[in-house]
């Protein structure tokens, strides 16, 4: 399968990419291309121009600034998986990065590409939601900081405007909190049927705060608010009872892999596993 015809430009800077986007409403940015190219082969996407931002300088790597880790948008999964700063201070991002696709995909795909693509089955959006991360976007009017809770608007729909370029993702230093990303799929290369991201503050077996976000339980990643509320102050069996509320308020899809009820059950089971793992069990 070969995509339909399009023009191809290599952007040398974020400003150049913004300029090209502003002049062409059919244009799309390409990073690793591992989500976009398959859509173009099947004609589900048919941009008239691709603007390659993978070589824009300054958009890769992880840098610590106080309590924040700034991840360049063009950082690949392969590099996130191994990044020593990330593994020490926000390991859930590295853990989730290592579960994306397969090694070949992780050599190509980027965090910024995945966030902008907004596939409800992608791994990183739920992780960013649980972390209360910030998405940094640059447009013709300057730089904008978007809370993760505002970024994932709908099915393949992010809050980014057409002429904005996602430049970085900011996640908090998690020292003192446990975290885990637990993904359920049938084959290693598949998307998540359901996955759960959990960030848990706890002491002596009692949870003070749990932030839980679910992958592929709706058209966007969602916080499991009822379970989170019940987790606060919980210990022992109360944690399992709280996890049993994880599917409340969700609207899971039905597809060839699983029905909605099966996904609801997975959300409950995986939430308990994720919280227990985050607590060091």
């Amino acid at each position: 399968m070969i995509p339909a015809e399009f023009d191809y430009r290599v952007a040398g800077s974020v400003e150049e990419a913004i300029g090209l986007l502003s002049g062409n409403e059919d244009a799309k940015l390409i990073a690793g291309g591992h989500s976009l190219i398959p859509l173009m082969k099947t004609r589900l996407a048919r941009p008239s121009m691709l603007i390659d931002v993978a070589r824009v300088p300054g958009l890769t790597g992880v840098a610590r600034d106080g309590g924040t880790l700034r991840i360049g948008a063009m950082t690949r999964w392969h590099d996130l998986e191994r990044d020593p700063v990330l593994r020490e201070h926000c390991p859930i991002v590295a853990e989730a990065a290592g579960q994306v696709g397969d090694p070949q995909v992780r050599h190509a795909g980027t965090i910024g590409g995945s966030v902008a693509h907004c596939d409800p089955a992608s791994d990183i959006p739920a992780v960013l939601l649980a972390l209360d991360a910030v998405i940094v976007a640059q447009g013709p009017g300057g730089t904008r900081r978007i809370a993760a809770s505002e970024c994932f608007e709908g099915f393949f729909q992010s809050a980014l405007a057409h002429d904005e370029v996602l430049t970085a993702v900011e996640v908090p230093v998690l020292d003192g909190a446990g975290c885990a990303y637990v993904k359920f799929n049938q084959r290693a290369i598949d998307w998540a049927i359901v996955a759960v991201a959990a960030v848990v503050r706890h002491s002596g077996g009692t949870i003070s705060e749990a932030r839980i976000a679910l992958t592929n339980m709706g058209t966007t990643p969602v916080r499991a608010r009822a379970a989170e509320a019940a987790m606060a102050g919980a210990s022992g069996d109360a944690i399992a009872a709280a996890a049993a509320l994880a599917d409340q308020g969700t609207d899971p899809p039905e597809d060839t892999f699983a029905g909605a009820e099966y996904r609801r059950n997975l959300a409950r089971v995986l939430t308990l596993r994720a919280v227990e793992r985050a607590m060091g069990a």
Binding site: I30, I37, L50, V105, H107, A108
Partner: peptide, 20 residues
């Protein structure tokens, strides 16, 4: 699967122009 700059990648999902 081929190697691009020494790393495995699936060449059916990569534009040749990306490899310039």
């Amino acid at each position: 699967t081929v190697h691009v700059d020494g790393e495995s990648i699936k060449s059916c999902t990569l534009l040749a122009v990306q490899c310039d």
